[in-house]
Each structure stands twice: as C-alpha cells, then as structure tokens.
Design a protein around this nucleic acid. Structure first.
Lengths: 235, 235
DNA sequence: CAAAAAAGTGAGCAGTGCTCTCGTTATGAA
DNA sequence: TTCATAACGAGAGCACTGCTCACTTTTTTG
C-alpha cells in the first residue's frame, strides 16, 4: 500500500509522491472532521490541494481506498492513545482507568475517525487484513494490564457465568500477552474492549442524552465496573 | 409527521397519500436492505414506484426525513421484538435471555435498519424527539425484568463499584417501571442496554471475526454475564 | 540522448439530492 | 353545482458526486 512508498524515498519523484500522499490524507482528514465520512469528497480534497480531481486516482484507486487508509491510520492512533496513556509502573486499576480515559479522549477529539472505525461500515467495505494488527493494539493494551495483574497474583477469580472455551477463536488466546489466558480471562478482555467502544459510541451518538447526567463521570464508573469484571481491584 | 396522515384517512386523496407514503417507505426499506443507508437513493425509490423523483418530495421533505421515518419505524420494530420475546410469566433469567435473543434476531435479519439506529448517525442528523419514546421501548423491556425480579425479592445486591446518583439524569429513574430504581439499579440497566447493542454491533460489523468462534454462543454468554451483573440469578 | 514510465489535465459519463415552473386534478366552501 | 384553492405529478435544470479516458508534460532510466 501507500505506506510502502513512505519509507526510504529515493528519487525526487518518489519523495514528492510520498509527500503528496500525506497531504491528501491530511486534507481528507480535515474534511472528515468537518462533514463526516459520508460527506468525504474526493473532488473537494483535490480542490483543496489545487489539483485535478482525476489526479487523486494516481494515489488512491478509489474513494474506498482512501477511507481504508484513514481507517488504518485511525486504528494506529487509537492504539497510540491507549499505549501512551498506560504507565506500566502504576497500579493495575490506575492503568486501566488511564487507558480508558485516553481512548475516550481520542474519540472525543476525533469523533469522525472513531465513527469510521466502529460505526456503520461504509458501503460494501470489507476490513483489509493489514488493519487487523493495528486494530488489535487498543484491546491489547487492556489485556496487558490484566496479564500483569495476573502475573502479580492480584487478579480476582472470574465471577459467576463462565465462558465455554469453544466460544473463543483459537488464535485469540495466544495473541494475548503474558502467561496464557484461559477462556474466561480472554472473554473478560473481549467484553471490556467491547464495553469501552460501546459506551464511547453511545456518548458520541447521543444515546446517553437525558439518560446520564455526567458523561465523563458515568464513563469513569463504567471503566471501574468493567475493570472489576475483568478481575482488577479498584480502590 | 407522516404518521398523522396514516390514521383515519377520509378523502380519497388522503387515502392515496397514506398508501403512497407507505409504499415509499417500503421501497426505501427494500433498497436499504440491498445497499445500506448511505446508498439509499431517492431517485431509485421513485424509479421503483414509477414516478418522477421530484414527486417524492411531496411526501418527504428530504432524504434525511425519509431516513428519520425509517429510524422511528426501526426503533418501534426492535421494541416490538423485545416485547414479543418477553414472557412475563417465565423466570427472570429466561425472560432476560429471551429478550436478548429477540433483539439479536431482529438485528440479524434487519442489519441495515440496526445500523441506522445504532451506527454512525447520518450527516448532520439529530434524533427527532418523537423517536425518543420508541427508542426507549427496548431498554424498558430489560428494565421490566429487573423490576419484576426486584419485586419478587430475587434481585442480587449490586456488585462492588457503586454508581453516584449524580451521574444519572433525573428523568431516567422515574421513567423505569416498578418500584423506584436507585442509581445502582438504573446504571446496571443502562449498561445492560449498552452491552446488548454493543455486542450485536460488534458481531454485525465483523469486529468479532477471528476473535470469537461461535457468535450465537458468545452472545448467550454475554447475555448471562450482563444479566448477572444486572442482579439476575442464572441457572 | 532517447525510450519508457509516471504524473497531471480536462472533458465527459452516469449518477445523486434538490428546486423550480408548469400543467392537472381533487377538494371544500359558496 | 360552480369555482377558487390547494395538493399533486412531471420534467427540466443546477450543482454536485465518483470515476474513466485520451491527452500532454515531466521525470527517470537504460
């Protein structure tokens, strides 16, 4: 993909190509923030860059491919946000809350990008395989806290309903960090990840309007609930 | 709105209007199922009905208004699904699971409508007030089970992290059925509602691809986890 | 230096939401 | 029953979209 060309540009042309690719992405990003994914217009991007609309197609084969590039970038940024918020030296409960807050923060300041990642998929769009690893970074940050708590022996045993190992994909468990997660622990991480995205989506899409009174406060409460379910002990 | 005109059509013209309005909605619904929300085209709907595209505007002021009508219809249908799945005579845990499954079933057979309700909001769209009551029916079905379990004295006490009452909107608690819900109970219902929508969204959007191995099974597990958190006892 | 590859251009196609004007038709009051 | 009014449908048209194609210009490379 385009990222290949960003590395080690040799000729002037390749350098220009990398730069322009970046500029297209930036312009698209700016437009995304103003109008939302469905209103992203290739022609408008071209206009902003002062080039013919057809020239964009030298860089991205289609509008969907541009969106895909933005999606991968988004997954990476939300992964960055989660990892940057995590201080491995801190206590598990603090780490957990920090990661949650970091993700929410990113979502609030990049709501259209967030919608691109976790909202309705665009037309007939299928997630490209290279997005999978980027997409996994955020939930992995959560898993790391659980893994460290487990290694430190401060992880609470799983609560009542247990998860049948057959429900979890074989590849998932071994993808998780630290000493092997069992099905219950894996399920708890999956649900925490789903909960984090779910509650942020609700806030962003207005479903909590007139339901909760303090979005940030309710979010923190949700983080604690989710962390406790995942086996962390909160002060 | 258009629904007003559906009731008690008197003159032939009013009857024709009501019928055509319904046909437009049906055609739009059909198109939605084939292509998704972003691809819903007013012109295509008009073509299917054999009328000029401009004539549609006599019935819906804009594409967004058509979508709004579909959204309200969707909220009502998912409310129907939840209520129809609920057998008030059954045990709380069975009722809970039945409602969850009913909602999932509806979502699987109406995935585009589901996306319309809980996915990325369309362009600059704001949820119309008349949608609020329809939107509340599904979570209310969940709340009813909790309320009945509470009345029967079989509701488990809230788990560790408690919810500050200040986080819940004042109107929410009194909207819930049965003897007054406190903040903790209300929060648990909100989170159950959010969880149900969240896990279905994940399944529908493919985020669980290669993460879980059995979508229906993991969904049931999630329902149990969520029900237990809400205070229900599962067999 | 010349051939080849890449980049940029502008016209054009088929489609979109939406507006406007224009005839037609049904309705409800005089 | 007459008739002004309001509702309706049609069609042209505007500004926009994604995308393709033939064409020229520029850069790289053998």
């Amino acid at each position: 993909m385009y990222t290949d060309l960003m590395n080690a540009p040799r000729t002037a042309r390749q350098r220009a190509r990398a730069e322009l690719t970046r500029e297209i992405l930036d312009a698209a990003r700016r437009q995304l923030g103003e109008a939302g994914p469905s209103a992203l217009s290739l022609r408008a991007v071209a206009r902003e860059l002062g080039m013919a609309s057809s020239a964009i197609y030298r860089y991205f084969k289609s509008r969907d491919e541009l969106l895909t590039a933005l999606i991968i970038e988004g997954y990476d940024e939300i992964g960055d946000a989660a990892e940057a918020a995590d201080d491995p030296a801190a206590e598990p409960d603090e780490r957990w809350t920090a990661i949650w807050r970091g993700v929410r923060e990113w979502a609030l300041t990049n709501r259209h990008e967030f919608a691109l990642l976790f909202g309705t998929p665009v037309p007939g769009y299928a997630a490209p395989p290279q997005a999978a690893v980027a997409a996994g970074r955020m939930p992995l940050a959560l898993a790391r806290v659980v893994a460290d708590a487990k290694a430190a022996g401060v992880l609470a045993p799983p609560p009542a309903p247990t998860c049948d190992p057959a429900l979890i994909d074989a590849g998932t468990a071994e993808l998780l960090p630290g000493a092997g997660f069992d099905a219950d622990e894996t399920a708890r991480v999956i649900l925490a990840w789903n909960r984090l995205v779910g509650i942020v989506s609700y806030e962003l899409h207005g479903h909590l309007h007139r339901v909760t009174a303090d979005d940030a406060g309710f979010f923190d409460y949700t983080a604690r609930v989710s962390g406790a379910f995942a086996g962390l002990r909160f002060a």
